[in-house]
């Protein structure tokens, strides 16, 4: 198996912002169990800013680490800024991922987008 970076291992062993936000303003879920990766993102939004974020993930070390990292990148950002975050940026913030993980387990930015889409839909924002 290919080596994970120290940063990936840190986020895997000590994931940030794990859990559920009961009164979330938006919830996004990406991936599917057949592939072995599912991420669910919960966000709280106030004045167009992501004030709180939590995640639940079923998946490998990379799936958990990218979920954790994206929550750190997104927290406190405006929706516009959050939507600009890419999977590639998440991987870079983790000091890289093994090539095979770049596609299958690197879904965190999509998870954020799904949660923001859900928020916009619920609040009638186009």
């Amino acid at each position: 198996m290919e080596q994970y970076s120290k940063k990936v291992m840190d986020h895997f062993f000590n994931p940030r912002n794990v859990g559920v936000i009961e009164d979330a303003d938006g919830i996004g879920e990406v991936g599917n169990p057949v592939c072995g990766d599912i991420m669910r993102m919960y966000i709280k939004v106030k004045d167009n800013v992501v004030t709180d974020i939590k995640f639940q993930t079923f998946g490998c070390g990379a799936a958990i680490a990218t979920s954790s990292m994206v929550t750190e990148l997104v927290k406190g950002k405006t929706l516009k800024e959050a939507l600009r975050i890419t999977n590639k940026q998440v991987a870079e913030a983790l000091e890289g991922l093994p090539p095979i993980k770049m596609h299958c387990s690197n879904l965190a930015a999509q998870g954020i987008k799904a949660a923001i889409d859900d928020y916009k839909k619920k609040h009638g924002i186009k």
């Binding site: 592939c35 079923f58 070390g61 387990s105």
Partner: peptide, 30 residues
């Protein structure tokens, strides 16, 4: 049920236990 093998292997390794899994991630394929 509900969890993935590579994560289990990495956490076992942290406890000093070497084991393996048949998950996609550990089989080197999808």
């Amino acid at each position: 049920k509900y969890i993935e093998g590579e994560s289990i292997i990495l956490l076992l390794d942290q406890s000093g236990i070497s084991a393996s899994s048949g998950s996609a991630c550990t089989s080197g394929s999808l």
